[in-house]
Computed example of a mutant assay.
Amino acid sequence: MPRSPLHTVHVRLGARFVDFAGWEMPVRYDSVLSEHQAVREAVGVFDVSHLGRFLVEGSGSTDLLRGLLCNDIADVDPGAAQYTMSLNEEGGVLDDIIVWRWSDERYWVIPNGANDDGIRARFRAAAPSGVTIESIREDTALVALQGPDSPHVFTTVFGLVPEHFRVTTGDFRGTPVRIAGTGYTGERGGEIAIAREAGVAMFDALLDAGATACGLGARDTLRLEMGYPLWGQDLDETITPLEAGLRWVVGWDHDFVGKAALERQARQGLAKHQVAFVMDGRQIARHGYPMRAGTSSGTVTSGNYSPVLGRGIGLGYLSPPAKPGAAIEVQVRGKWVSAHRSKLPFIGRR
Results as ranks from 00 to 15, higher is better:
Arg178Met: 12
Ile179Pro: 11
Gly181Gln: 04
Thr182His: 06
Thr182Trp: 04
Gly183Ala: 10
Tyr184Thr: 06
Tyr184Arg: 10
Gly186Asn: 02
Arg188His: 14
Glu191Gly: 03
Glu191Arg: 07
Ile192Val: 15
Ala193Lys: 05
Ile194His: 13
Ile194Cys: 12
Ile194Val: 15
Ala195Asp: 15
Arg196Trp: 07
Phe203Val: 00
Phe203Gly: 00
Asp204Ala: 13
Ala205Lys: 02
Ala205Ile: 06
Leu206Gln: 11
Asp208Asn: 15
Asp208Glu: 15
Asp208Arg: 14
Ala209Thr: 09
Ala211Val: 10
Ala211Ser: 08
Ala211Glu: 02
Ala211Phe: 13
Thr212Arg: 08
Thr212Val: 15
Thr212Lys: 07
Ala213Trp: 01
Ala213Gly: 04
Cys214Leu: 06
Gly215Val: 02
Thr221Arg: 09
Leu222Trp: 02
Leu224Glu: 02
Glu225Met: 12
Gly227Thr: 01
Pro229Tyr: 11
Pro229Cys: 08
Gly232Glu: 02
Gly232Pro: 04
Gln233Ile: 00
Asp234Lys: 02
Asp234Asn: 08
Glu237Leu: 04
Glu237Ser: 15
Ile239Leu: 08
Ile239Arg: 09
Thr240Leu: 01
Glu243Ser: 01
Arg247Phe: 07
Arg247Gly: 14
Arg247Ser: 14
Trp248Gly: 10
Val249Thr: 09
Val249Trp: 13
Gly251Met: 05
Gly251Ala: 09
Trp252His: 05
Trp252Asn: 03
Asp253Leu: 05
Asp253Lys: 13
His254Ala: 02
His254Glu: 04
His254Gln: 03
Asp255Thr: 05
Phe256Pro: 07
Gly258Ser: 06
Lys259Tyr: 12
Lys259Gly: 08
Ala260Asn: 06
Ala260Trp: 10
Leu262Ala: 11
Leu262Gly: 12
Gln265Asn: 10
Ala266Trp: 03
Ala266Asp: 14
Ala266Cys: 07
Gly269Arg: 03
Leu270Asp: 09
His273Pro: 00
Gln274Lys: 13
Gln274Asp: 03
Ala276Trp: 00
Phe277Lys: 01
Phe277Ala: 01
Val278Gln: 15
